[in-house]
């Protein structure tokens, strides 16, 4: 029981960081119909920029905000320079160009910072909380709470502020938005900027948990199972699905994997199931697409035809 609780808390912490990345993907999809594979690249670049700023001795909060600002510019630039000229291109070309962005960002980071994992500077104080028999480091608490608060804050911003209203309007019906005087193309750029900034923050948080490396770009791929489970067009869905998948991964790692390995060792010659927690989200993705393609919270018929 204590183990289950421990796993649940750890899963919620990483899950809320996933949610932060996935919310960005949904935001971009709603606004510009693009499925952005480069979201993981934003997370990775964000983490490296934070690293550089932290190394200069800036206070953590300034460094993280600075990296989010840099990422917002990066996001806007990708939208303006890369995606906008491709408005009429076929879907496969649009998906491929975002993959191209991912490849370029990864190569650029590789050239600048090298292939090795870098120890990330301390952002949160050392130590751990132990309560109700579970044990969790401040790192996890801070990352989880921060990501959760920011996700909720962003949802509130999107739902209740005038800019959020313009965003929703531009995403919902471009023509109607233009007709009532919303500058749709600026709103699209803004969506990319916010999305990249959120991913940059998520990348920084992941780096505080697991260290800084190029793998962060790959972790961004987890956003796809998350958004499919949550429903491609639902921001709240992305948040809930992110938390769910975080917990699912954590339980797979802590409970299912040991049980399964024991069973397999007895009955087959397979001695390890490897990183099972990394494929479980994808298996869930396939099941979801087969039985409820609109996701838990999506609407039917949201496919871009």
């Amino acid at each position: 029981m204590t183990l289950a609780l421990q796993l649940a808390v750890a899963g919620l912490a990483t899950g809320s960081v996933y949610a932060l990345i996935a919310i960005g993907v949904v935001l971009i999809f709603k606004c510009s119909g693009v499925v952005n594979f480069a979201q993981g690249a934003y997370a990775m670049v964000g983490a490296y920029v934070s690293y550089v700023l932290l190394r200069t001795g800036l206070p953590a909060i300034v460094a993280v905000l600075g990296s989010m600002a840099v990422l917002a510019v990066f996001g806007t630039l990708t939208e303006r320079l890369v995606l906008r000229p491709m408005l009429k291109a076929p879907l496969v070309a649009v998906m491929m160009v975002t993959l191209g962005l991912l490849i370029v960002s990864r190569a650029a980071c590789l050239i600048v910072w090298g292939p090795d994992q870098i120890a990330f500077p301390k952002v949160f104080p050392e130590g751990a909380i132990s309560a109700a028999g579970i044990f969790i480091t401040y790192n996890y608490v801070a990352a989880g709470v921060l990501a959760l608060v920011l996700s909720l804050g962003f949802l509130a911003f999107y739902q209740f502020t005038p800019i959020g209203l313009q965003q929703r309007c531009a995403a919902d019906n471009t023509r109607a938005a233009l007709a009532i005087g919303i500058h749709v193309s600026n709103q699209v750029s803004l969506a990319w900027a916010m999305s990249a900034a959120l991913a940059g923050l998520a990348g920084t948080l992941l780096a505080t948990l697991n260290g800084l490396s190029l793998d962060l770009a790959g972790i961004g791929m987890i956003a796809f199972p998350v958004i499919v489970v949550g429903g491609l067009s639902s921001l709240a869905g992305a948040l809930i699905a992110g938390l769910l998948l975080g917990m699912l991964q954590s339980f797979t790692d802590g409970l299912l994997t040991p049980a399964l390995e024991e069973f397999l060792r007895e009955h087959t010659s397979i001695y390890s199931v490897g990183a099972l927690q990394q494929v479980v989200p994808y298996a869930l993705l396939v099941l979801m697409l087969l039985f409820r393609p609109q996701g838990l919270f999506g609407r039917r018929g949201t496919e871009r035809v």
Binding site: M221, Y271, A275, V279, V286
Partner: peptide, 26 residues
Amino acid sequence: RLRGLYFAIATLAAQAILEYLFKILD
């Protein structure tokens, strides 16, 4: 059952699952 974007994402999952199988089917 799926078209366009949704199918593309499903194949992404297939790629991930097959990669995993390559690693564990010792």
